[in-house]
Write a protein that binds this DNA or RNA. Structure first.
Lengths: 341, 341
DNA sequence: ATCCAATATGGAACCGATTTCATCGACAAG
DNA sequence: CTTGTCGATGAAATCGGTTCCATATTGGAT
């Protein structure tokens, strides 16, 4: 069941069949119709491997993520695929499980499959792996890491503005003792978010208490444990920011377990705004990072560079926005605090 | 950067390079070493497309799911990939978004990429699409649908035992008015789960009230709305089973919004046991459907049929198990009910 | 009527691997 | 010393498409 059989049935050459399939203009409507009939009759599906081999383009775009189990990523994957499909391209998903070794495996896969571009939405990226890809002139786009270079695009996230808004929100509710649960500190993205937090606290003129910063793992269990540690301290924060929503959701559980209430006893703010965050109890106030936007920009960045040899790597910036729900409230009235419930 | 250049550098033929890469025994240790050196030096990555074309095996296994946004599936994907990697195979993920049309696109992808097998973990499957694949002798495995035929395996889920356990659990807590929120009724899997529920209720000798069955969409918003409808009725159930955990989580929100409490006012049981269900507040009692087990069986079923032309399609059965958490409790004391809090 | 340009189509090389089959050399047996 | 056997290697066909280049055909201009 290959192109030759189709050609024979339609009484044309394989070249003409190929042209018909690819919508080349140089085929008579009549001939094209005959070919289409033959394809239909034989239930012919062109072999993607042969196609890629012959044409040099795989129509495949790689998407490397850290953890498919974190809802942030499936939502990103979905959006990325949606855009890719619009352009008639396919997506190859690879996840690293936050493991630098697996990252190498992922890159190898991309190289072997001859993808037309790679979106790297994770930060455990090794310099030499980047070289491996960029030296082969594969368009790349990073999420919030990486230096924009020739053929390499970068999507920066304006953490400062997002986290400033969160801190401002808490501050306006009377909170001064604000804690933070970070992601795993060996991840660049986690470090960047944490730095944005400390900077923001300083900018607001609040006191930065290192005792109120704990490390999580970007998953629920890590958030749970980190919050437990925070609650065990002598001086508790009245509000806590987290490095992502999963962490916040885990943290929320730890708070309830102590018989405390959100936001009455502790206000909580997440980061990402995954779909789930609208359904927690209470709804999670968070800083939204639009997956649709990231996915769209990422794909377009790759596609443009690929199709348009002239296009060079570009720099984009995403603005996160504060989404106020029910997990934040005025600091509880204590000793005549000025923000009674 | 192809096999020829490697051959030239190592001063051997391309055949020998190919043999070395594939670990064929007929290569002297010395020669193999020289080839490996050359590969290393040139940073050569064999072209998967050419490889698949030449050998007739793609080492790719397809995994078709309904909704990557439902945490059940990412967990399944992860497990499936883990097993595949152990066997040196790759995974091609495709999701249908519950849309039969997209399903056709997914199958086309599989056919074009010449996958070595397809795991169909979704039920919006058209008979003719199955034929399309099975007539090409592609090993298939279905999750809980499909008739086991030659080369087609099926993983059945013993809903009866899982849902019986759930109903028994509620019954022993004194519940008699048990509601159900189903998945979208155009999905086979949703219908099967609903039927398991009604059967179970009948077997327990409880009264089946069609008024207490509402339709959701297997997502949080659907669960939320369905529960809202249930709560608006004159006679409310004291306990509700849902078709999956996402539905239960959405439902929980609707309950809280009315100022009611779980499990005090309403007991809630989910289905799947996604990771999240241990972190809801209160923890969700649910019926666990092991993704690891499903993924492992699914991949092995495909791999065995592929590698072992003799192996025919097989039938497997998965036993779900009840996980008791905090979302179920005795029916609230009313008019001297016999199960006071 | 003649010639040219434009257009549709076919032939064949090519993409980069795998794999069959032939060959070569070495070593053991006679 | 010759011959048979076996193991390592290479040459070339092959997989199923794409695409360059050549050719045939058509219609319009002169």
């Amino acid at each position: 069941m290959n192109i030759k059989e189709v050609a024979r049935l339609a009484k044309v050459s394989t070249a003409t069949v190929s042209r018909t399939i690819n919508g080349s203009e140089k085929v008579t409507a009549e001939t094209a119709e005959r070919v289409r009939q033959a394809i239909e009759t034989l239930k012919f599906y062109p072999n993607t491997n042969a196609r890629a081999l012959g044409s040099g383009r795989s129509s495949l775009y790689g998407l490397i993520i850290s953890d498919i189990t974190n809802p942030f990523f499936p939502e990103l994957v979905k959006s990325f695929e949606d855009v890719a499909v619009q352009f008639g391209q396919e997506v190859l998903i690879a996840n690293t499980n936050y493991d630098p070794h697996r990252m190498e495996v992922c890159v190898t896969r991309m190289l072997q499959r001859k993808v037309d571009g790679v979106a790297i939405m994770t930060s455990e990226m090794d310099e030499h792996l980047i070289d491996e890809m960029s030296s082969r002139r594969i368009p790349l786009v990073f999420l919030d890491t990486g230096t924009p270079q020739k053929g390499i695009s970068n999507i920066a996230i304006d953490y400062a503005s997002g986290i400033d808004a969160a801190v401002e929100h808490l501050s306006s509710l009377g909170h001064t003792a604000i804690g933070f649960i970070s992601g795993p500190m060996d991840l660049t993205s986690a470090r960047v978010r944490r730095r944005a937090f400390t900077n923001s606290i300083k900018r607001k003129g609040l006191k930065l208490d290192r005792n109120m910063i704990e490390e999580g793992n970007h998953r629920m269990d890590g958030g749970h444990e980190a919050m437990a540690r925070l609650l065990d301290k002598e001086v508790r924060p009245t509000a806590v920011l987290t490095s992502n929503d999963m962490t916040a959701i885990g943290a929320m559980g730890a708070i309830f377990e102590r018989g405390l209430k959100v936001p009455h006893d502790i206000s909580l703010i997440g980061f990402d705004d995954i779909e789930l965050s609208a359904f927690t109890q209470p709804g999670l106030t968070t800083v939204r990072l639009s997956r649709q936007e990231i996915a769209k920009i990422a794909f377009r960045a790759l596609y443009d560079v690929k199709e348009n040899a002239s296009a060079k790597g570009a720099e984009f910036t995403i603005q996160p926005t504060l989404i106020e729900r029910k997990s934040t409230g005025p600091v509880a009235a204590r000793r005549g605090g000025k923000h009674p419930v």
